[in-house]
Design a protein around this nucleic acid. Structure first.
Lengths: 191, 191
DNA sequence: TTTTTTATTGACCAATCAGTCAACAATATG
DNA sequence: CATATTGTTGACTGATTGGTCAATAAAAAA
């Protein structure tokens, strides 16, 4: 197996396993079996388990950034903006289940530094800018706190996409629910 | 050390460690060290690691249920009902950080059966009953799907209480946000 | 008091853990 | 071509994992 192939195979296998079982419950031997490579190659290519974990996270983040939808432009009417917002994000999470899983791992991993997720991205600032813009045009009630509106939206999307306990399971029902959320946010924002 | 003391010490130590590090990253030796008991006693009292994990979960649930009184009665006006709903749940999660941690562990644990959290409790049925009741009195728009309203409420509370990435950190700000959520839900529910 | 049940101990187990190392093969570079 | 770098292998390590077991101590039941 050529250099690139081996390293890629290890990364792919590690990603699958880490995403599913987390750091502690994934062993090097599990990775070596899935990747079908020699045990030592993992250490040769990635140093140690911890560094491999970080490499996997970076891999996910990188792939994520490529597929990440931009925030809908806010030169369109508020209802359309909000609907697109919900729709785009739901789509994004659906297409990137690995990042969903990683965000959930971050929630619990005491060992880990945070660096994945909406919350800590530059996106947040763009969202606030957009909301403030609509408050200037008075499509959003200027009395409402932009941070609160943003948190609500993020919470609703995250719960729907990230929480495996969510009641609403089927895709179509979830779409209908997202639509309901969008309409609700619009109503909340109105004067 | 007497019987009761030993078993309780093991359970307490295991609870601390499982809550913090999860199942896989907590070892028997860690528990034995923290509890200051002999290695074999853990197996004598709990059988194996998996059973100890289940015992810890049951312990958390048991201790939790005593303080649980989340759902307000629905013979009061809707706005009061909703506000209490948010307030009670926020309080509940704040007073039970262990259950918060366990819910988050359940999210990621592939090995685990779900049995903690709002979603899977009998509470859900009570919530739906309450919402339907308010739809009969037309305080809630009867056209809205009760499941959607409920999911929204659960999502907002859960995100605020469970997600360590939440923007709103301070207690007072969180209270204000919960208040904002309550008002928003009331607005959504209105005809 | 005697007997039975339960608690506690420490020695022991195979399996697995992450990681190293020296030897060798393949490839890149000069 | 020769040399240097990188990739690959398998054998090996000490530490740790969850778990067993027989012997003994303590407590409960008879």
């Amino acid at each position: 197996m050529a250099k690139q192939n081996t390293k890629a195979a290890i990364l792919a296998a590690a990603r699958k396993l880490f995403v599913k079982y987390g750091y502690a419950a994934t062993s090097i031997s599990m990775i070596e079996t899935l990747a079908k490579v020699n045990h030592s190659l993992i250490f040769h290519h990635f140093g140690n388990k911890q560094k491999l974990w970080i490499a996997v996270k970076q891999d996910i983040v990188l792939q994520t950034k490529a597929t990440q939808q931009a925030l809908p432009s806010h030169d369109q009417p508020l209802p359309i903006f909000i609907k697109k917002l919900f729709h785009n994000h739901m789509l994004f999470y659906r297409e990137n289940p690995d990042i969903v899983s990683m965000i959930n791992w971050q929630r619990v991993d005491a060992r880990d530094e945070l660096d994945i997720g909406i919350t800590h991205s530059k996106e947040v600032k763009a969202w606030l800018t957009a909301i403030k813009h609509y408050q200037e045009t008075e499509e959003i009630n200027p009395k409402l706190k932009p941070e609160f509106i943003m948190t609500m939206i993020v919470s609703l999307i995250s719960a729907a996409a990230l929480d495996p306990n969510i009641f609403i399971k089927s895709k179509t029902a979830q779409n209908a629910y997202m639509n309901f959320c969008a309409k609700s946010i619009i109503k909340i924002c109105s004067n």
